[in-house]
Design a protein around this nucleic acid. Structure first.
Ligand SMILES: [Zn+2]
Ligand SMILES: [Zn+2]
Ligand SMILES: [Zn+2]
Ligand SMILES: [Zn+2]
Lengths: 137, 137
DNA sequence: TCTACACCCTGTAGCAACTACAGGGTCAAG
DNA sequence: CTTGACCCTGTAGTTGCTACAGGGTGTAGA
């Protein structure tokens, strides 16, 4: 399988595949006589794992650790679960922050009565944090 | 006011202040005989506006447009309100995405029964998107 | 046989929004 | 006269890609 095929098979940009190889996330595949990368099904599976993990929001370093466990299947899975649990906690924290932010933004937008910028309550609110209800993280 | 003072007064990293000047978000201040930046209260107000907008999640380019309105107070405020409304829409979309993601992650984590990585349902779930309930954006 | 075209290669630079040096200069206190 | 806290410029690093530039390869049609 050449890189274009792998790209289509996994929905991954060609440049991204080469990038993953460069940073050592994917092993370098064999080369054809024309120096083209030649992938097999294991490469495809591995790349799918990487892409899926990325889509679920895991960082490259987290994916690296997860792949490490894939390669050492005799190890305890607790590390994988820890990575996932911590990631979930981060997601939950982010949700909380964004919900607070949403509230603040709606308040600010609700203050606008139209007119010129000099009288705009939105701009005024941006200039003055004391009009906010909470601190921003 | 020297840069360190402005930094403390606004809770902004010194490097960030210089960065804002470099990208043209803040006007270059006067210089002392020792070539130190000398800020006045207008600079402080402006930086506070920038920082507050950034804390509320507006992009640098959005902040640039907002500052443009601050500098042209005779213009209609509709542009400011549009920027804020669009930003709110983005935040809401992000919240939705994260909530979906949170659901998916909890499901995945809930599948773990401990043991070796070879049998880990977390790793299995990462390898196989068909175990997911929705597509990831 | 020539040539058009779709591929592939490497290497480097760009994006956002900072942050962190390295390697200097300035200035007041002790 | 030296110590320490500041300040300066310029450049490189961060994360996770993406987009070239400037080449090589392989195949199908005229
Ligand atoms: Zn308004
Ligand atoms: Zn605020
Ligand atoms: Zn497990
Ligand atoms: Zn999935």
């Amino acid at each position: 399988m050449k890189i274009g095929e792998l790209s289509r098979a996994t929905g991954t940009n060609i440049e991204t595949i080469r990038y993953y190889e460069r940073i050592g996330l994917l092993k370098a595949p064999a080369r054809t006589s024309a120096n083209y990368r030649a992938y097999d099904d294991l490469h495809r599976t591995r790349l799918a794992f990487v892409r899926h993990s990325r889509e679920l929001g895991f960082s490259i370093e987290e994916v690296r650790s997860l792949l490490d466990l894939v390669d050492n299947p005799e190890r305890e899975c607790s590390q994988a679960d820890q990575i996932a649990t911590r990631h979930l906690a981060k997601v939950e924290k982010k949700i909380d922050q964004l919900i607070t932010l949403r509230g603040e933004l709606s308040q600010i937008i609700g203050r606008c009565r139209g007119g010129v910028a000099a009288d705009c309550r939105v701009i005024e609110s941006l200039a003055d944090h004391t009009m906010c209800h909470r601190d921003h993280v």
